[in-house]
Design a binder for these strands. Structure first.
Lengths: 261, 261
DNA sequence: GCTTGCACCTCCAGTTACGTCAGGAGGTAG
DNA sequence: CTACCTCCTGACGTAACTGGAGGTGCAAGC
C-alpha cells in the first residue's frame, strides 16, 4: 500500500518534458534532489517530485532565477507579499517586450527597404535602425521641450508616410555618397542640396523648425546626437560646405544656424 | 589638416553609450580594434570607429550574435540577400514575444488572485500558471480533434470570466485540501463534490463533455496531462473515491469513466 | 622629492542555465 | 562473449559580457 511509484530519470524526464541534463543540474544545485537507489546510485523520482518540478518551471516562466526559486519552493503557500516582486518581474518583462517590438519594427522596415532598393549603404541602413530604436526616447525628450502638436506632427506618421520617408532618406544618402567630393557648383550637387533641404522641410514642418530655432544651443546639440549620422566626418563636412555655398549663392532661406553639427 | 580627432576609451565610451568594459571586450574578440598609442598602449578611437560601433549595436538589436556581426561589418553595403536571415530573426523575436506575453498574462492573473485571496496554496497557483502557459498548445491540440465551437466555448472566455474561473478553481482546491481525509459521507465533503462537479460542468459545457466522451482513451489521457493537477497523489485518490461514493449514493449523472487519473 | 588620484592597461575569474562529450558501471539480449 | 541500453560522475563549452586584482604613466598637491 505504502509503495509509491518511483521513476528513473529517463522516464521522469519524458513525463515532465524536462531534459535529463537539466534534472542532473537541478540535483547538483540542490533545487530538486530525488531519492537515490542505495546501491546503483540511480536517481528515483517520486510523485511529489513531479509537483516540485511543476513549481520550478512555473516560477521560471514568471522570470525568477533558480536561486530564488530554491527559496520559494519550500513554502507551501504564497501570499500577497509576493506581489511586490511580481510587479518587478512584470515591469522587466514589459521592457523586454518593448525592445522586441522595436526590433521587429526595425526588421520590417529594413526588409521593405532592401526589397525596394536591392542594395543599400550599410551606414545608411544602420542609422535608420538607430533612429527607429531611439524613437521612443526621442519622443520623450521632445515632449519635455517642444509643444505637443509639433511632436505629434513629427512622429505620428502613418506607415506609408514612414516608408516614404525611409526611401527618401536612403535615396538622398545614396546621392550624397555618390556626389561626395564634387565641386559645389556642379548642377547635380545643387540639385541634391535643394532636394535635401526640401525633404527636411517637408519632414520636419514649419512650426517644428520655428520651435527648434527657439531652443538653446545645448538642446539642439543634444538633438543631433539623437540622430546618428550615416556619413563619415568628411562627407559631413562636404555636405555642410555645399549647403553653405548653396545658400550664399542662391539666397536660399537661411536657417539662423548654418551648421549641422 | 589630416589630423583626425582621436578619443581615449573613456571619452569614446561616454559619446557612444557603450561601457568601457564592453569596448575592451569588442577589442579582445576582434570586433572593434582601435589604433593603439605606441608607448602608453592606450586605445585611440577614431570617427570611423564611431560608425563601426553604430553598425555593431544596430545589428545587435536585429538579433545577430557578435560572431556574425564581425563578418557583416566588413561589407560596405547590404543587399536583399540579407532578407532571408532577417525573416529568421523576425520569427525568433516573435516567438520570444509570445512567451513574454504569456508570462505577463500569468503574472497579472497571479497578482489578481493573490490580492483577492490573500494566501493561496502554492501547488494550486503553480498549476494555474502551467495552464495559462500551455493554453496555446492546448488550443491547437483540441482543434485537431474536437469541433470548433466546442473549442471556442472552452477557451474564448472574457477577462472577467477567466478571473471568475480562477477564483472558483482556487476556492475549490482550497476546500479539497482542507477536507482531505474526511469521510465521504461528511456533509461538507458532499457539498464540495457537488460544487466541484457543478463548476466543471459550467466550465466545460455540455457539448464539450459529449465530445470528450467520444474521444478514445489515449486522447483523453493526453488531455489530462495538459492540465497539471495541483493535488498530491493521495489527495487525488481521495477526491476520486469521494466522487465515486457520491455518484453511487446519489445516482448523480455518471460520466462513463469515473476515473480522473 | 614623495604621495595621492586618475585614467588607462592586462590577465584571470565568475555569471546563467544548461549542452555536450568522455569514461565507466550494471544489466540484458542475442 | 559481446553488443547495447540506461544510468552515473566529472569536466569543459556557451554568449556577452561584468568584476576584481595588480600594474603603469602622468599631473597635482604637500
Amino acid at each position: 500500500m505504502g509503495e509509491q511509484k518511483k521513476y528513473l530519470i529517463g522516464e521522469f524526464s519524458e513525463r515532465t518534458g524536462t531534459s535529463v541534463r537539466t534534472l542532473h543540474y537541478y540535483d547538483e544545485i540542490g533545487l530538486l534532489t530525488p531519492e537515490k537507489h542505495p546501491v546503483s546510485g540511480h536517481r528515483l523520482y517520486s510523485d511529489r517530485d513531479v509537483l516540485t518540478l511543476q513549481k520550478i518551471v512555473s516560477l521560471k516562466v514568471l522570470g525568477y532565477p533558480l536561486e530564488q526559486i530554491a527559496d520559494m519552493i519550500c513554502k507551501p503557500t504564497f501570499d500577497v507579499g509576493l506581489n511586490e516582486s511580481l510587479y518587478l518581474q512584470k515591469k522587466a518583462f514589459e521592457e523586454k517586450k518593448e525592445q522586441i517590438e522595436a526590433a521587429i519594427t526595425s526588421i520590417n522596415r529594413v526588409i521593405t527597404i532592401l526589397e525596394e532598393e536591392g542594395e543599400v549603404d550599410s551606414a545608411v541602413l544602420m542609422s535608420l535602425i538607430s533612429s527607429i530604436q531611439t524613437e521612443k526616447d526621442l519622443k520623450q525628450w521632445l515632449e519635455e521641450r517642444a509643444p505637443k502638436e509639433v511632436v505629434d506632427q513629427l512622429l505620428n506618421k502613418s506607415e506609408e508616410e514612414k516608408l516614404g520617408l525611409d526611401k527618401a532618406y536612403v535615396q538622398l544618402s545614396k546621392e550624397v555618397k555618390r556626389l561626395f567630393g564634387k565641386p559645389f557648383d556642379d548642377p547635380e550637387v545643387q540639385k541634391l542640396i535643394l532636394d535635401y533641404m526640401k525633404a527636411t522641410m517637408e519632414f520636419v514642418g514649419e512650426e517644428a523648425i520655428k520651435a527648434f530655432q527657439q531652443m538653446d544651443v545645448q538642446d539642439s546639440e543634444q538633438l543631433v546626437e539623437h540622430y546618428p549620422s550615416p556619413f563619415t566626418p568628411e562627407e559631413e563636412a562636404w555636405l555642410n560646405q555645399a549647403m553653405e555655398y548653396c545658400m550664399t549663392h542662391r539666397h536660399f532661406m537661411p536657417p539662423e544656424d548654418g551648421e549641422r553639427k
